[in-house]
Simulated scan of single mutants.
Amino acid sequence: MKKKKTKLFTKVCGLRQADNMAEIDKLGIDFIGLIFYEKSPRYVLLNQELEAEFIPTKAQKVGVFVNTDPTEILALCKQFQIPIVQLHGQESVAEVRFLRQQGLRVWKAFGVSTQIDGDLIKKMKDYVSLCEYFILDTQTAQFGGSGRSFDWESLQNYTLPQPFFLSGGISLQDAERLQSLDHQALIGIDLNSRFEKQAGIKDVNLVAKFLKQLYPN
């Protein structure tokens, strides 16, 4: 008998509109990503509505930061009631340790240029004991949101025990392929630009269709 595939966590990242966030939340996803990177078109503070009022969701909120001062991260997480931070830049081990000591759950993103290789694994090792999860994303100058994927065949080179989310260019057409991925450390998928009507506004019907295709039963 074929082993039933374990359901992966689903994170939808880059939301910055209250109604859109509420509709995505109704789909039963696990995490919602709020991007606090000023150069991103999905920068959450571009929306005064979200800046002024915390939007309640069943999904847990993840604050996405790029090379942000840890004290600023703490302040924003307190303001938006965010328990999880995703660090997407060149944050040091010391910075990660500090945020952990303040009671935050920390995820660390690593950019994959084309393939996962030994140099990347070596860099990741320093963060294993400090991070809850890793994010494997396509390396870009914009720190994500490129709509491009890296070579998923190279996931076989990922030998660390740290659970990871797969990110970077995942689209509706990838649902069947994701069903066939079999890696013991793969714990979730991160959806972003391929599910948008415009930057920061997700297509709710498209996300729903993807989830139905990924888990038809």
Rank of each mutant, 00 (worst) to 15 (best):
V44R: 01
L45R: 10
L46T: 08
N47M: 01
Q48K: 14
E49L: 10
E51Y: 11
E51Q: 13
E51T: 10
A52C: 08
E53T: 12
I55P: 02
P56H: 11
K58V: 07
A59F: 13
Q60K: 15
V62D: 09
G63R: 01
F65L: 09
F65W: 10
F65A: 05
V66M: 03
N67I: 03
T71E: 15
T71Q: 14
E72L: 13
A75N: 12
Q79T: 11
V85K: 00
V85Y: 09
V85Q: 09
Q86M: 13
L87I: 13
H88D: 05
H88F: 10
E91Y: 11
S92I: 01
V93L: 14
E95G: 00
V96Q: 09
V96C: 15
F98S: 05
L99S: 07
Q101A: 13
Q101N: 14
Q101P: 04
Q102N: 12
Q102F: 00
G103Q: 12
R105L: 14
R105I: 15
V106K: 11
W107P: 06
W107D: 02
F110Q: 02
F110S: 04
G111I: 10
V112A: 08
V112P: 06
T114G: 09
Q115D: 14
G118C: 12
L120T: 05
L120V: 07
I121N: 11
I121F: 02
K122I: 00
K123H: 11
D126P: 04
Y127L: 06
Y133C: 12
I135A: 00
I135D: 00
L136R: 10
D137L: 03
T138L: 03
T140P: 09
T140C: 04
A141P: 07
G144V: 05
G145C: 01
S146G: 02
S146E: 04
G147T: 00
R148K: 12
S149H: 05
D151T: 03
E153N: 14
Q156F: 02
Y158R: 05
Y158G: 06
P161T: 12
P161Y: 02
P161S: 11
Q162D: 01
Q162M: 14
P163Q: 03
F165T: 09
F165A: 01
S171T: 09
L172E: 05
L172I: 05
